[in-house]
C-alpha cells in the first residue's frame, strides 16, 4: 500500500468522520460542563436536524448547504423547547434522573422522525458523486465543506467563549453556577444559550453525516457512542478537546481496519473510551470547566 492510498482511503474518511463526531461532541461537552449531565438524546437530535434539512431540500429544491442554517436554527429552537418542557422540571433532582429522561427524549424524537419521514434510507442528492482528483488526493466537495465548516465553528465558538460577554457568562456558570448567579448572571438565559448552540451544532453534525452517507432514522443513535468517546478523550468541558477527541476517534476507527479484522471497527471507540478512563480520566486536555 502506498502513501496516497493510506491518505485517500484511510486518513481522509477518518478526518471527515472525525469532524462530524467533533461537531456532536462539542454540544455534548457544552451541556456536560454547564448543565452537568450526559445528554443521551444528542444523537437523535442530530438525526432530527438532518431530516429537517431533508424536508427543506425536498420542499424548496435548494441545496443541502443552503438548508443547513435553517435546519440548525430549527433544531436549536426544538432543543430549547425540549429543555423547557422536560429537563427544566428535573433541574433540582439528582442528575441521573435527567440523564434517564434524556434517553426517553431520544426514543421520542426517533419515534417522531419515523412517523413523519418513515424508516427508509433517504439521501439529499440522488445518484453518486465521484471525487475530484487534486494531485492524487481524492476529495469530494462535500468533504471539503464538512472540514471547513467544523474549523469555522470551532474558531467562532472559541472567540465567543473567550471574548464576548455571554461567552464569559457561560464559562462562569460552568465554573460555579451559584457564584455566577450571585454575580448577576442570569442562569436561565445561559441555559437557553447553551441549548441553542448545542442544538445548532448537533443539527450540523446530522446534516453532514447525511450528506456524506445516507439519512436513516437510526443514524444519530449509532453516532452517540463515538461522540461520547470523543468528548471524554479530549477532556470534558473543553471545546478544543472535543475536536481533538473527535478527530482521533474518527481516524482510529478507519485505521483500525489495517490491524484488526474489520468487524471490530465499531469496538475501536469503546476501547479508546475504556483506555482513556483507565489511564487519564480527565482527558487529553485536562478538562473540567469551559
Amino acid at each position: 500500500m502506498d502513501f496516497m492510498e493510506l491518505l485517500n482511503f484511510y486518513l481522509m474518511p477518518g478526518i471527515v468522520l472525525g469532524c462530524i463526531y467533533a461537531l456532536g461532541a462539542i454540544g455534548v461537552t457544552l451541556i456536560f460542563s454547564i448543565l452537568r449531565y450526559a445528554h443521551l438524546a444528542h444523537g437523535d437530535l442530530a438525526t432530527l436536524g438532518a431530516f429537517l434539512a431533508l424536508a427543506i431540500v425536498s420542499g424548496f429544491g435548494v441545496s443541502p448547504l443552503a438548508a443547513l442554517p435553517v435546519a440548525m436554527i430549527g433544531t436549536a429552537v426544538i432543543a430549547v423547547f425540549i429543555d423547557k418542557a422536560f429537563y427544566n422540571h428535573l433541574r433540582e433532582r439528582p442528575k441521573i434522573v435527567t440523564v434517564m429522561a434524556s434517553l426517553g427524549i431520544a426514543l421520542m424524537i426517533r419515534a417522531v422522525i419515523q412517523v413523519v419521514w418513515g424508516v427508509d434510507s433517504e439521501s439529499y442528492v440522488r445518484g453518486i458523486v465521484r471525487p475530484e482528483n487534486y494531485w492524487g488526493l481524492r476529495i469530494r466537495d462535500r468533504e471539503i465543506y464538512t472540514i471547513a465548516f467544523m474549523i469555522a465553528v470551532v474558531v467562532a465558538l472559541q472567540l465567543f467563549l473567550g471574548r464576548s460577554k455571554w461567552g464569559k457568562a457561560m464559562r462562569a456558570m460552568s465554573d460555579n453556577p451559584d457564584l455566577a448567579l450571585l454575580s448577576g448572571i442570569d442562569n436561565r438565559k445561559v441555559i437557553i444559550l447553551t441549548w441553542l448552540i448545542a442544538g445548532g451544532l448537533c443539527a450540523s453534525a446530522g446534516v453532514f453525516l447525511g450528506l456524506n452517507t445516507e439519512l436513516k432514522s437510526m443514524m444519530g443513535w449509532h453516532m452517540l457512542l463515538p461522540m461520547f468517546a470523543a468528548t471524554i478523550l479530549g477532556g470534558v468541558g473543553r471545546v478544543d478537546g472535543a475536536v481533538l477527541g473527535g478527530l482521533i476517534v474518527g481516524v482510529a476507527e478507519e485505521l483500525s481496519v489495517l490491524v484488526l479484522p474489520s468487524e471490530y471497527k465499531t469496538a475501536t471507540a469503546f476501547v479508546i473510551l475504556l483506555l482513556m478512563l483507565l489511564v487519564r480520566p480527565t482527558g487529553l486536555l485536562r478538562g473540567k470547566v469551559l
Binding site: M1, E5, N212, E254
Partner: peptide, 20 residues
Amino acid sequence: FAAHEADKASYRSNLAELAD
C-alpha cells in the same frame, strides 16, 4: 473475505483492504 459491522458512516478503509 471480510465481515463488517453495520451502520458506520464510512467503509472506505474496509473496501480498500478488500480491493487490495
